[in-house]
Protein backbone atom coordinates (compact mmCIF):
# COMPACT_ATOMS: atom_id res chain seq x y z
CA UNK A 1 0.00 0.00 0.00
CA UNK A 2 2.97 2.33 0.50
CA UNK A 3 3.78 2.21 -3.19
CA UNK A 4 0.18 3.06 -3.99
CA UNK A 5 0.39 6.04 -1.63
CA UNK A 6 3.57 7.15 -3.37
CA UNK A 7 1.90 6.79 -6.78
CA UNK A 8 -1.05 8.90 -5.59
CA UNK A 9 1.27 11.55 -4.17
CA UNK A 10 3.11 11.80 -7.50
CA UNK A 11 -0.21 11.90 -9.35
CA UNK A 12 -1.52 14.63 -7.02
CA UNK A 13 1.61 16.67 -7.63
CA UNK A 14 1.45 16.25 -11.42
CA UNK A 15 -2.21 17.22 -11.48
CA UNK A 16 -1.62 20.14 -9.15
CA UNK A 17 1.39 21.83 -10.71
CA UNK A 18 2.77 20.98 -14.18
CA UNK A 19 -0.33 19.66 -15.97
CA UNK A 20 -2.59 22.68 -15.26
CA UNK A 21 0.25 24.97 -16.34
CA UNK A 22 0.56 23.14 -19.65
CA UNK A 23 -3.18 22.94 -20.22
CA UNK A 24 -3.72 26.63 -19.49
CA UNK A 25 -1.44 27.39 -22.42
CA UNK A 26 -2.74 24.67 -24.75
CA UNK A 27 -4.09 26.08 -27.98
CA UNK A 28 -6.68 23.40 -28.66
CA UNK A 29 -8.93 24.88 -25.95
CA UNK A 30 -10.13 27.59 -28.35
CA UNK A 31 -10.98 24.99 -31.02
CA UNK A 32 -12.75 22.52 -28.75
CA UNK A 33 -13.75 24.19 -25.51
CA UNK A 34 -15.88 21.16 -24.62
CA UNK A 35 -12.86 18.87 -24.55
CA UNK A 36 -10.88 21.37 -22.48
CA UNK A 37 -13.79 21.72 -20.07
CA UNK A 38 -14.05 17.96 -19.56
CA UNK A 39 -10.30 17.77 -19.08
CA UNK A 40 -10.37 20.46 -16.38
CA UNK A 41 -13.15 18.68 -14.55
CA UNK A 42 -11.23 15.42 -14.71
CA UNK A 43 -8.08 17.13 -13.44
CA UNK A 44 -9.86 18.79 -10.55
CA UNK A 45 -11.67 15.61 -9.53
CA UNK A 46 -8.70 13.30 -9.91
CA UNK A 47 -6.35 15.85 -8.37
CA UNK A 48 -8.59 16.30 -5.34
CA UNK A 49 -9.03 12.56 -4.84
CA UNK A 50 -5.30 11.90 -5.23
CA UNK A 51 -4.51 14.70 -2.79
CA UNK A 52 -6.73 13.16 -0.13
CA UNK A 53 -5.97 9.60 -1.20
CA UNK A 54 -2.18 9.76 -0.84
CA UNK A 55 -2.07 10.50 2.92
CA UNK A 56 -5.12 8.33 3.50
CA UNK A 57 -3.61 5.26 1.87
CA UNK A 58 -0.27 5.80 3.59
CA UNK A 59 -1.90 6.33 6.97
CA UNK A 60 -4.05 3.23 6.60
CA UNK A 61 -1.22 0.98 5.38
CA UNK A 62 -0.34 -0.59 8.76
CA UNK A 63 -3.97 -1.46 9.52
CA UNK A 64 -4.73 -3.91 6.75
CA UNK A 65 -4.20 -5.02 3.17
CA UNK A 66 -7.22 -3.42 1.57
CA UNK A 67 -8.90 -0.05 1.99
CA UNK A 68 -12.12 -1.59 3.27
CA UNK A 69 -10.34 -3.88 5.72
CA UNK A 70 -8.08 -1.16 7.15
CA UNK A 71 -10.86 1.42 7.57
CA UNK A 72 -12.91 -1.15 9.48
CA UNK A 73 -9.88 -1.93 11.64
CA UNK A 74 -9.24 1.76 12.44
CA UNK A 75 -12.89 2.32 13.34
CA UNK A 76 -12.90 -0.79 15.54
CA UNK A 77 -9.77 0.36 17.40
CA UNK A 78 -11.12 3.88 17.78
CA UNK A 79 -14.40 2.65 19.20
CA UNK A 80 -12.62 0.38 21.65
CA UNK A 81 -10.11 3.16 22.39
CA UNK A 82 -7.52 0.38 22.15
CA UNK A 83 -4.40 2.45 21.65
CA UNK A 84 -1.96 -0.23 22.90
CA UNK A 85 -2.81 -2.26 19.80
CA UNK A 86 -1.21 0.47 17.70
CA UNK A 87 2.24 -0.62 18.81
CA UNK A 88 1.64 -4.24 17.80
CA UNK A 89 0.58 -3.06 14.32
CA UNK A 90 3.77 -0.96 13.99
CA UNK A 91 1.84 2.26 13.58
CA UNK A 92 4.23 5.21 13.44
CA UNK A 93 3.34 8.81 14.40
CA UNK A 94 3.66 9.65 10.71
CA UNK A 95 0.81 7.26 9.92
CA UNK A 96 -1.44 8.94 12.46
CA UNK A 97 -0.40 12.34 11.15
CA UNK A 98 -1.18 11.31 7.56
CA UNK A 99 -4.61 10.02 8.56
CA UNK A 100 -5.45 13.26 10.34
CA UNK A 101 -4.24 15.22 7.33
CA UNK A 102 -6.43 13.25 4.95
CA UNK A 103 -9.52 13.65 7.13
CA UNK A 104 -8.93 17.37 7.62
CA UNK A 105 -8.27 17.99 3.95
CA UNK A 106 -11.42 16.15 2.93
CA UNK A 107 -13.52 18.03 5.48
CA UNK A 108 -11.97 21.33 4.46
CA UNK A 109 -12.83 20.75 0.79
CA UNK A 110 -16.41 19.73 1.53
CA UNK A 111 -17.00 22.61 3.94
CA UNK A 112 -15.58 25.16 1.52
CA UNK A 113 -17.82 23.83 -1.23
CA UNK A 114 -20.82 24.10 1.09
CA UNK A 115 -19.91 27.59 2.25
CA UNK A 116 -19.37 28.82 -1.30
CA UNK A 117 -22.71 27.33 -2.32
CA UNK A 118 -24.57 29.06 0.51
CA UNK A 119 -22.81 32.37 -0.10
CA UNK A 120 -23.39 32.33 -3.86
CA UNK A 121 -27.02 31.40 -3.41
CA UNK A 122 -27.53 34.23 -0.93
CA UNK A 123 -25.97 36.93 -3.06
CA UNK A 124 -27.78 35.63 -6.13
CA UNK A 125 -31.13 35.80 -4.35
CA UNK A 126 -30.37 39.38 -3.27
CA UNK A 127 -29.36 40.27 -6.81
CA UNK A 128 -32.53 38.72 -8.27
CA UNK A 129 -34.64 40.72 -5.80
CA UNK A 130 -32.91 43.90 -6.88
CA UNK A 131 -33.33 43.10 -10.56
CA UNK A 132 -37.02 42.39 -10.08
CA UNK A 133 -37.54 45.69 -8.31
CA UNK A 134 -35.31 47.87 -10.45
CA UNK A 135 -35.72 46.54 -13.98
CA UNK A 136 -38.42 46.62 -16.60
CA UNK A 137 -39.07 43.69 -18.93
CA UNK A 138 -37.84 44.45 -22.42
CA UNK A 139 -41.19 43.75 -24.09
CA UNK A 140 -42.92 46.38 -21.92
CA UNK A 141 -40.44 48.92 -23.16
CA UNK A 142 -40.97 48.06 -26.79
CA UNK A 143 -44.74 48.01 -26.47
CA UNK A 144 -46.85 44.91 -26.91
CA UNK A 145 -46.17 44.64 -30.64
CA UNK A 146 -43.76 41.73 -30.24
CA UNK A 147 -46.22 39.63 -28.26
CA UNK A 148 -47.13 36.93 -30.84
CA UNK A 149 -43.55 35.81 -31.45
CA UNK A 150 -42.22 36.45 -27.97
CA UNK A 151 -38.66 35.20 -27.70
CA UNK A 152 -35.98 35.04 -25.07
CA UNK A 153 -35.04 38.60 -26.02
CA UNK A 154 -38.43 39.86 -24.91
CA UNK A 155 -38.06 38.19 -21.53
CA UNK A 156 -34.79 39.95 -20.84
CA UNK A 157 -34.87 42.59 -18.13
CA UNK A 158 -33.47 46.07 -18.55
CA UNK A 159 -31.74 48.01 -15.80
CA UNK A 160 -31.06 51.73 -15.93
CA UNK A 161 -27.29 51.89 -16.21
CA UNK A 162 -25.04 53.67 -18.63
CA UNK A 163 -22.36 50.97 -18.75
CA UNK A 164 -23.06 48.50 -21.58
CA UNK A 165 -23.65 45.23 -19.77
CA UNK A 166 -25.28 41.89 -20.30
CA UNK A 167 -25.38 39.05 -17.79
CA UNK A 168 -27.54 36.22 -16.60
CA UNK A 169 -28.75 35.27 -13.14
CA UNK A 170 -29.47 31.59 -12.69
CA UNK A 171 -32.52 30.71 -10.64
CA UNK A 172 -33.58 27.46 -9.03
CA UNK A 173 -35.66 26.60 -12.07
CA UNK A 174 -35.15 27.73 -15.61
CA UNK A 175 -38.23 29.95 -15.41
CA UNK A 176 -36.83 31.91 -12.48
CA UNK A 177 -33.57 32.64 -14.28
CA UNK A 178 -33.21 36.11 -15.73
CA UNK A 179 -31.11 37.70 -18.43
CA UNK A 180 -30.26 41.31 -17.60
CA UNK A 181 -29.31 44.00 -20.12
CA UNK A 182 -28.33 47.56 -19.34
CA UNK A 183 -29.91 50.62 -20.88
CA UNK A 184 -26.47 51.59 -22.19
CA UNK A 185 -26.15 48.33 -24.12
CA UNK A 186 -29.66 48.59 -25.53
CA UNK A 187 -28.92 52.05 -26.92
CA UNK A 188 -25.92 50.82 -28.87
CA UNK A 189 -27.07 47.49 -30.32
CA UNK A 190 -29.29 46.61 -33.24
CA UNK A 191 -32.04 44.04 -32.76
CA UNK A 192 -29.95 41.30 -34.37
CA UNK A 193 -26.98 42.07 -32.15
CA UNK A 194 -29.24 42.14 -29.11
CA UNK A 195 -30.65 38.73 -30.03
CA UNK A 196 -27.11 37.39 -30.32
CA UNK A 197 -26.05 38.62 -26.91
CA UNK A 198 -29.21 37.25 -25.30
CA UNK A 199 -28.58 33.89 -27.00
CA UNK A 200 -25.10 33.96 -25.49
CA UNK A 201 -26.50 34.48 -21.99
CA UNK A 202 -29.19 31.86 -22.56
CA UNK A 203 -26.51 29.33 -23.46
CA UNK A 204 -24.85 30.01 -20.09
CA UNK A 205 -28.15 29.22 -18.39
CA UNK A 206 -29.06 26.18 -20.50
CA UNK A 207 -25.67 24.57 -20.04
CA UNK A 208 -25.69 25.32 -16.32
CA UNK A 209 -22.34 27.08 -16.44
CA UNK A 210 -22.97 28.62 -13.03
CA UNK A 211 -22.58 25.21 -11.38
CA UNK A 212 -19.20 24.65 -13.02
CA UNK A 213 -17.86 28.08 -12.17
CA UNK A 214 -19.11 27.74 -8.61
CA UNK A 215 -17.40 24.37 -8.13
CA UNK A 216 -14.11 25.69 -9.46
CA UNK A 217 -14.49 28.85 -7.38
CA UNK A 218 -14.89 26.71 -4.26
CA UNK A 219 -11.91 24.58 -5.29
CA UNK A 220 -9.86 27.77 -5.57
CA UNK A 221 -11.07 29.16 -2.26
CA UNK A 222 -10.19 25.92 -0.52
CA UNK A 223 -6.61 25.73 -1.83
CA UNK A 224 -5.70 29.13 -3.29
CA UNK A 225 -1.93 28.46 -3.18
CA UNK A 226 -2.16 25.49 -5.53
CA UNK A 227 -1.51 26.37 -9.21
CA UNK A 228 -4.20 23.99 -10.40
CA UNK A 229 -7.02 25.78 -8.59
CA UNK A 230 -5.99 29.20 -9.86
CA UNK A 231 -5.47 28.09 -13.47
CA UNK A 232 -8.57 25.94 -13.30
CA UNK A 233 -10.82 28.75 -12.16
CA UNK A 234 -9.57 31.12 -14.83
CA UNK A 235 -9.74 28.49 -17.55
CA UNK A 236 -13.27 27.41 -16.68
CA UNK A 237 -14.51 31.02 -16.73
CA UNK A 238 -12.90 31.49 -20.12
CA UNK A 239 -14.24 28.20 -21.47
CA UNK A 240 -17.80 28.94 -20.39
CA UNK A 241 -17.62 32.16 -22.39
CA UNK A 242 -16.35 30.27 -25.43
CA UNK A 243 -19.10 27.67 -25.09
CA UNK A 244 -21.70 30.41 -24.78
CA UNK A 245 -20.29 32.09 -27.89
CA UNK A 246 -20.53 28.81 -29.78
CA UNK A 247 -24.09 28.31 -28.57
CA UNK A 248 -25.09 31.79 -29.72
CA UNK A 249 -23.43 31.31 -33.10
CA UNK A 250 -25.67 28.36 -33.94
CA UNK A 251 -28.52 30.77 -34.55
CA UNK A 252 -26.87 34.16 -34.97
CA UNK A 253 -24.23 35.55 -37.24
CA UNK A 254 -20.70 35.79 -35.95
CA UNK A 255 -20.54 39.49 -36.78
CA UNK A 256 -23.59 40.33 -34.68
CA UNK A 257 -22.22 38.32 -31.80
CA UNK A 258 -18.75 39.84 -32.05
CA UNK A 259 -20.03 43.38 -32.13
CA UNK A 260 -22.40 42.86 -29.23
CA UNK A 261 -19.79 41.11 -27.10
CA UNK A 262 -17.12 43.66 -27.85
CA UNK A 263 -19.51 46.41 -26.79
CA UNK A 264 -20.72 44.70 -23.67
CA UNK A 265 -17.27 44.72 -22.12
CA UNK A 266 -16.41 48.37 -21.57
CA UNK A 267 -12.89 48.11 -20.21
CA UNK A 268 -11.61 45.63 -22.75
CA UNK A 269 -8.20 46.26 -24.26
CA UNK A 270 -8.49 44.14 -27.40
CA UNK A 271 -7.67 47.18 -29.52
CA UNK A 272 -4.14 47.51 -28.25
CA UNK A 273 -3.44 43.82 -28.54
CA UNK A 274 -4.76 43.59 -32.06
CA UNK A 275 -2.76 46.63 -33.10
CA UNK A 276 0.40 45.17 -31.71
CA UNK A 277 0.07 41.67 -33.13
CA UNK A 278 -1.91 42.41 -36.25
CA UNK A 279 -5.30 40.87 -36.89
CA UNK A 280 -3.83 37.48 -37.78
CA UNK A 281 -3.05 36.76 -34.13
CA UNK A 282 -3.35 33.01 -33.57
CA UNK A 283 -6.38 32.02 -31.59
Amino acid sequence: MTSLALFLAVLAFLLAVPIPRLLSRARFRARSPWAAMLLWQAIALAGGLALIGAPLVYGLSPFGGSLHESVAEVLKLLRAADFTALEDLHVLPTHVFALCLAVMLGTHLLLTLLRTYVRVLGSRRRHRDLVRLLSTPLDERRGATTAPNATAVDEAHVIEAEAPLAYCLPGRTHASSVTVLSRGLLDQLSDAELAAVVAHEQTHLHQRHHLLTMAFDAWYRALPWLPTTRYGREAVLELTEMLADDGAMQHHSRDDLLRSLALSTPEMSLIDDADADGPSRPA
Binding site: E234, M242, T265, M268, A283
Partner: peptide
Amino acid sequence: SDREAVLARFIG
Protein backbone atom coordinates in the same frame (compact mmCIF):
# COMPACT_ATOMS: atom_id res chain seq x y z
CA SER B 1 -14.26 37.23 -16.67
CA ASP B 2 -11.62 38.32 -19.11
CA ARG B 3 -13.50 38.80 -22.38
CA GLU B 4 -10.37 39.86 -24.15
CA ALA B 5 -8.80 36.43 -24.16
CA VAL B 6 -12.07 34.85 -25.21
CA LEU B 7 -12.69 37.23 -28.08
CA ALA B 8 -9.11 36.89 -29.23
CA ARG B 9 -9.92 33.47 -30.63
CA PHE B 10 -12.13 35.11 -33.23
CA ILE B 11 -9.43 37.48 -34.35
CA GLY B 12 -7.62 34.88 -36.41
